[in-house]
Amino acid sequence: MSVFVSNTLYSFLISFGVIVGASSFAGIGALINNQPPLKTMIDLAQSVKIWAVATALGGTFSSFQLFEEGVFRGEIVLLIKQIIYILSALIGANLGLKFIKLFQKCGELWIK
């Protein structure tokens, strides 16, 4: 597998893992504090999405610096790669949120 494909996969899975992991531990914390765990998990997953993307990209400044080089120095390939990495991280974060919301849907089906 090429370096580009593996880095794209890493971006996706890291952002997905940040959302799912943070939400899971927030759910455990909500149980300990006698709060509704699913609501806490979903609220946290929505607020952590941008941080998951920043984590997956390895920090926002290096990503924006590479983005700037692509725009101002005319390196289109570098610019396209950065856009794909960012989109991959965004898709991973959104899919992580959908995965957490799936728990809520499964709970509703289970109760009925």
Rank of each mutant, 00 (worst) to 15 (best):
57 L>I: 13
86 I>N: 08
89 A>M: 05
83 I>G: 07
90 L>T: 07
111 I>N: 14
87 L>F: 13
9 L>A: 15
91 I>T: 13
102 L>G: 05
99 F>M: 03
46 Q>G: 10
27 G>T: 05
108 E>Q: 14
15 S>P: 09
38 L>K: 10
75 E>L: 10
62 S>V: 09
37 P>I: 05
8 T>L: 15
51 W>K: 02
100 I>Y: 05
30 A>C: 11
50 I>L: 09
69 E>Q: 08
85 Y>M: 11
71 V>P: 01
3 V>F: 15
52 A>C: 08
25 F>C: 09
105 K>V: 09
84 I>E: 02
19 I>Y: 05
50 I>C: 03
28 I>T: 09
57 L>E: 04
85 Y>E: 02
16 F>E: 00
66 L>I: 03
4 F>M: 12
72 F>L: 09
100 I>Q: 02
102 L>I: 03
49 K>W: 01
41 M>R: 02
83 I>H: 03
75 E>R: 12
59 G>M: 04
75 E>K: 15
99 F>D: 00
20 V>P: 04
81 K>Q: 13
112 K>R: 14
81 K>E: 07
10 Y>H: 11
88 S>C: 12
55 T>A: 14
29 G>R: 06
110 W>M: 14
49 K>R: 11
93 A>N: 07
95 L>D: 02
109 L>W: 14
80 I>F: 06
23 S>I: 03
3 V>M: 14
106 C>R: 15
38 L>I: 12
93 A>M: 11
6 S>W: 13
21 G>P: 06
70 G>R: 02
12 F>M: 06
63 S>T: 10
42 I>P: 00
66 L>E: 04
47 S>G: 05
87 L>D: 04
29 G>L: 11
22 A>S: 15
66 L>G: 03
12 F>Y: 13
106 C>M: 15
98 K>W: 10
1 M>P: 08
7 N>V: 07
41 M>F: 06
45 A>T: 04
16 F>Y: 13
21 G>A: 10
42 I>V: 13
63 S>L: 12
79 L>W: 01
48 V>D: 00
80 I>N: 05
84 I>L: 15
101 K>E: 09
62 S>D: 05
9 L>E: 03
60 T>G: 08
71 V>E: 00
68 E>N: 09
64 F>L: 15
64 F>Y: 14
34 N>I: 09
6 S>T: 15
8 T>G: 14
96 G>W: 04
42 I>S: 01
16 F>V: 08
100 I>S: 01
47 S>V: 13
78 L>F: 02
7 N>R: 15
55 T>R: 03
95 L>E: 03
57 L>C: 01
78 L>W: 01
105 K>G: 04
87 L>P: 00
5 V>A: 12
84 I>Q: 00
96 G>T: 05
108 E>K: 12
72 F>E: 00
36 P>R: 08
